[in-house]
Design a protein around this nucleic acid. Structure first.
Lengths: 224, 224
DNA sequence: AAAATATGATAGTAATACTATTATATTTGT
DNA sequence: ACAAATATAATAGTATTACTATCATATTTT
């Protein structure tokens, strides 16, 4: 639990923002409305000018919180992964059996998102959709290595490592724990995307969930 | 083989381009140099103006071939997947045993790219890197459904279906052939990306290839 | 009540993503 | 060989983007 409260409350790398959006009402409105707008119009069409108009604030005021929309996306993604990490650690902490623990972990990482009333200004369901549709764009850039060094992806990496460690705990002989872990996380986003837009490329639908697919995939791969 | 020569020579959906770049010297230079430039500077920084300067042609001339850089990316990706499909069908066609066939297929889809001298103006090694870094951006847009209807992703979809069918041929009882197939294709790109930029999130390195990982993953999942 | 800080209003800039027009090559058909 | 058609080049122009800068006005803190 050590890293946790950190991640959820102030754990987002301070270099991602200029001024902490949690520290003011305007900041929270920026976060709240940007989630809705990015979801509605897509990241490419989203601009700070449009966001300013929507929240009846000034473009230049938004720039005092985030350097640009890319940084805002990094912030939203970090928040999302931190929130998932919180749920992961909270729900698996007390499970002693490694197989049960990993099962629960996969469930949490691949299940449909439900609203969390603990964070009133963030719509987690919509944020999950943004992550599905936009997260890749936050690291598929020429600046990844630099930004990785700055620590902009730590929460995401820590999360994948947690799952990787659970895999190792269950089957220390399995040669690809990190690859399998990253496949679950990234693959889950991808299956949800396919379900929505390329249904012929996935078996996930109303009856089959990504969770079922990944549970099957993982436990057939491991000796357990 | 029916669809094939089509895909490789003229099979790229004609709605993707305004004028077929294969039909002229300028068109080929556009394709050739755009691959190098997108790789060098990333898709975001790449512009038709810069490309024009590089190939000593005019911005407006490039617009006569492609509506915008997004369409150019769709074209390059279609070419890439068509090229891979060609290799897939060519190499697996004569293999009668379903297990050998699928093994070969996974190898082709997940191996490192090598130059193909058959297409002098296209650097397949660099194009593969573009696909790893930029392909997701071609479908993670608000226009996917529209563009999917227009047929801009047919080759990619056909490819995933081919692998899916090979999985079914080997184990008709496996419930997730399409999801597994899409996991191999998309997951392979992702593992190569991680290897390059987030090495702690993958087990793939100089000694372990994505091919090994996916072969293990797939055959542990299937009854064979 | 003064000082500090946050926000708003307005303006300005370089670059992007085009479109339009006209001129000049180059190719093709007769 | 010459006209007609087509392709490419040159130039200019527009709306929008992604900012930066400045100054005014609130609001909070001390």
């Amino acid at each position: 639990m050590e890293h946790l409260l950190q991640s959820l409350k102030i754990g987002i790398n301070e270099k991602i923002f200029i001024k902490d959006p949690e520290s003011s009402d305007l900041g929270k409105r920026i976060v709240e409305e940007s989630i809705l707008m990015i979801h509605e119009m897509g990241f490419e069409s989203f601009t700070f000018r449009k966001l300013g108009a929507k929240i009846k604030s000034n473009e230049s005021s938004i720039y005092r919180y985030f350097e640009n929309k890319h940084k805002l996306l990094l912030y939203l993604a970090s928040w999302y992964w931190g929130w998932l990490e919180y749920q992961l650690v909270f729900s698996t902490n007390s499970i002693p059996d490694p197989k049960d623990k990993l099962t629960k972990a996969i469930e949490i990482m691949t299940r449909e998102t439900k609203e969390d009333s603990a964070f009133s200004h963030i719509n987690e369901v919509v944020l999950n959709k943004i992550v599905i549709n936009e997260y890749s764009k936050s690291y598929l850039t020429k600046e990844v290595d630099e930004e990785n060094k700055e620590g902009y992806f730590v929460i995401y990496k820590r999360l994948i490592n947690r799952i990787s460690n659970m895999i190792k705990a269950l089957d220390s002989s399995y040669p690809y724990p990190s690859s399998l872990s990253s496949t679950i996380i990234e693959g889950s986003l991808h299956q949800y995307f396919l379900k929505e837009h390329f249904s012929s490329l996935t078996d996930c639908n109303e009856n089959i969930t990504p969770t079922q697919y990944f549970i099957d995939l993982v436990f057939k791969s491991l000796k357990a």
